[in-house]
Amino acid sequence: MEKIKVRGAPKSWQRSTSPLTICPGCQHGVVAELLCDAVDELGIQGNTIVISGIGCAGIDAFMVDMDAFIMCPHGRTCDVATGIKRALFGKPIVVALQGDGDCIAIGAGSLISAALRGEKITVIMANNANYGTTGGQLAPTTLLDQVTSTTPEGRDPGLAGYPAHVPEMLVPFRGVAYAARGAVNTPANYQRTKRYLKAALQKQIDNIGLSFVEILSACPANWHRTPVECLKWIEEKMIPEYPLGEFKNADRID
């Protein structure tokens, strides 16, 4: 009998000597793992530039070992991604790895401008329904009646509005080639989300338009639940509000 390795960290995963700085049970590590897996399977590790803003999603960028990773000001990730893509004549594969606050709160204008211009970049948004880094405040993606540190009695739509559905919002934009939403709460959803990420990166390789993938991820520290209860909460509360699936898959843009 011989022992062979079937699964370890992905090839493009950056192994540091210390533990990651994410909280126990935080699924940003899984989001970065999915990106690494998709990049490895497409064979574009040496040609991929990952750009990340401020926030918990910024930690993801430290986990990837690709051509380069670049940190940028909060909410300006799509702008910096556009600049890099254009300055290098469209050669690199540019991935904007964002959190929900970075993508749709502070960076909403950047995302919409990039979608209007039809930039050939891939935007990944990890949605944990609050601002994780600063202590769990209300974010645009917070669910109705969800308790956060700034809505202690639950999100009231009359006061704080309704949750933002980003992939559905991007569907009418003509510059958007791909919009999908996945989750990583079960192994089945994990594999499905990996397919979405590969399809999104393929759209950029084929030079079609902006591709967007939202990934629902758990935040046990700010939801005040154990990690396994968080997965149940995603299944029961988040997925009914944010349905999974592909919303747009265009082969060409007229």
């Binding site: 009998m1 011989e2 022992k3 062979i4 390795k5 079937v6 699964r7 370890g8 960290a9 992905p10 995963w13 192994r15 533990p19 990651l20 994410i22 049970g25 935080c26 699924q27 940003h28 590590g29 899984v30 793992e33 897996d37 990583v184 192994p187 994990y190």
Partner: peptide
């Protein structure tokens, strides 16, 4: 797959001399 910190490595026992099986990941 589900480990967020990539702390787990998985090994499989195969008979000696067999070809390397397909990567299930």
């Amino acid at each position: 797959w589900m480990c967020p910190h990539q702390a787990i490595e998985v090994y499989k026992y195969v008979e000696s001399g067999q070809n390397e099986p397909e990567d299930i990941s």
